[in-house]
Design a protein around this nucleic acid. Structure first.
Lengths: 223, 223
DNA sequence: TAGATTGTTAATCGATTAACAATC
DNA sequence: TAGATTGTTAATCGATTAACAATC
């Protein structure tokens, strides 16, 4: 049922970074690279790079290394960047607007075809050549323009009911910027989460952990 | 040198999610929970929850479970949310604006004290009660207002030189939204990356992997 | 050919799960 | 006390690293 089976999450998460570094190498006119050289640049082991790539095929050549452009294209293909998905954005607030204007979706195969918001004052305003549609018209819109992917840029409390509507419309793929845990609600959907709050808390942990707080626990100090 | 030593990255990454779920339980008026109940809600094993928590201390009670509020506060403390960091934002474009307006930094201990951009047309405009400062005045600003954390919301090509300036000013903590790999440039800094492009590519992989493409490789088709 | 570097198997390391004694 | 559930040790599982034969 899957193109590549049993590929572990850690491997998949490294692919975009490989892709990025290979793109940079191309920009710098470098045409070949060994796993050893690449590992030094990326701060990984050469072994890991070879193991990762060999999940998908033997892209290198003994005694020579890898063709930078060849490998770049292979990874792009593995990632599925040569596909195209009709994508709608739910929520045209600050975050939604930023996501819509900032991202080069098209480069990654996501074609933005609709933007929705329940705030009537936003309806009709144009973001990236697309007029914001009233969220009430979601079903009408999708009747004629089935979407493949929905991007959630709405507050947590609004997600559940909208998710149900999208699910009914057959949409199963989500890029989720809300703090709502979609994967707990449905088990047959594909979700990629961007939890900015979680990321910020992890930064907070890293900083406070590094700063060698003395272990006198403030909570137990009566002073 | 560290508050908690040898805590693995997988454990740390789960902490914000625990925090979020516990917050929801509190909102719903639930005061106690067992690792088994929580594991069912979160889609984890009870074993993992107990292992994770016991990295930091024994917060539960045999035969009873965990106090929801108690555990919530403990995790907040572990994450270091009771700290305060003077934070500057570099880049007042769409993404920077969204990050500044969307995030409840203060709740996580990050106090936004400055916003910088090199676009003179943006200088002086006000975002979240803070006037955008000319990037040229970064050093002047930091002379009197040392910052603890910098948020990067600028294009990749602009990062390296700004990072050098911030590094010289003693800033070592970064929330990095750019596609530049800061951790490769310096080894004594703390970086939390939000690579939206990487996330989008991973979504792309998940979708195309699930859709059972026939294995006829288009690239080798001469048709 | 000799040198280099891959693809791949084997060894190690770390993270997750299971089990259970401790104890509330 | 009996029942429940933790904290923690042991077992399993998976991911990373090391080693090396294959081969360009």
């Amino acid at each position: 049922m899957h193109k590549y089976e049993n590929i572990s999450a850690p491997v998949i998460k490294r692919l975009p970074r490989y892709y990025r570094f290979l793109g940079e190498l191309m920009d710098n006119g470098i045409t070949r690279i060994s796993s050893k050289e690449l590992s030094a640049k990326m701060g990984l082991t050469a072994s890991q790079i070879r193991q990762d790539l060999n999940c998908f095929g033997g892209f290198g050549q003994q005694g020579y290394g890898y063709s930078v452009e060849g490998l770049y294209n292979e990874i792009g293909h593995i990632l599925g960047l040569d596909h195209s998905y009709r994508t709608i954005l739910i929520g045209a607030g600050n975050l939604g607007k930023a996501v819509a204007t900032h991202m080069s979706f098209e480069k990654r195969g996501f074609k933005l075809v609709g933007i929705f918001d329940n705030d009537k004052s936003k309806v009709g305003s144009v973001i990236r050549d697309i007029a914001v549609t009233d969220l009430d018209d979601l079903e009408d819109f999708c009747k004629d323009n089935a979407a493949d992917v929905a991007i959630f840029c709405v507050p947590k409390y609004a997600v559940a009911s909208i998710a149900d509507r999208l699910y009914k419309l057959g949409i199963r793929n989500f890029w989720n910027f809300s703090h709502y845990d979609l994967s707990v609600r449905y088990d047959d959907i594909i979700v990629e989460n961007v939890h900015l709050n979680d990321s910020l808390m992890i930064l907070c942990y890293k900083i406070s952990d590094a700063h060698d707080e003395p272990e006198n626990d403030q909570r137990n100090n009566k002073s």
